[in-house]
Amino acid sequence: MIETLVFYLAATLAIGGALAVILARTPLTGALSLIVTLVAVAMLYLLLDATFVAAMQVLVYAGAIMVLFVFVIMLLNLGPESGARPSYGSLSKLLGGAAIGYFVVRLIGAVATGAAGRPVDGSIKSVGQLLLSDYLFAFESISVLLLVAVVGAVVLGLRRLT
């Protein structure tokens, strides 16, 4: 019963925060709403037995990535009217939005089958063992990718793009 309540609380927070992200008048409001969504999604992860992923969600996403976003928003110092209105004008964008709505409706219809679910061990021990055995190559590749991203971000930040 408590699981049901927590699920609906987290789902409402996640979807409400997501709506606030795309409807926000300023990027900073959107970034703060996105933090709400990310923490609510971490609650969903906890309900799915994914304790390690939930902790990483709060640490990496709500911590590191969103600090980066807020930092850049402050650095750009955009005016309040910047990006205030969504550009609803063009027909192609409306058609694209309608296609996404249709996609979501079909997806909900397709997944609403109602399987029970099984217990999964999502602790840091089991996931860590999995990362260093079955997913060892991907794990090491990720470290190279992150190194490339750090070097790329520093190079892009140093030079003037002309």
């Binding site: 999964v120 061990d121 089991s126 999995l130 997913y135 990720i142 992150l146 790329g152 930040g157």
Partner: peptide, 26 residues
């Protein structure tokens, strides 16, 4: 349990994407 490892990879790639994307934006 492999889904948890994949979710971890997605998170790492999102971090890399955000870092490079925001640097390009700057």
């Amino acid at each position: 349990a492999g889904a948890h490892a994949i979710a971890f990879f997605v998170m790492a790639i999102a971090a890399a994407e955000a870092a490079v994307g925001l640097a390009i934006l700057l």
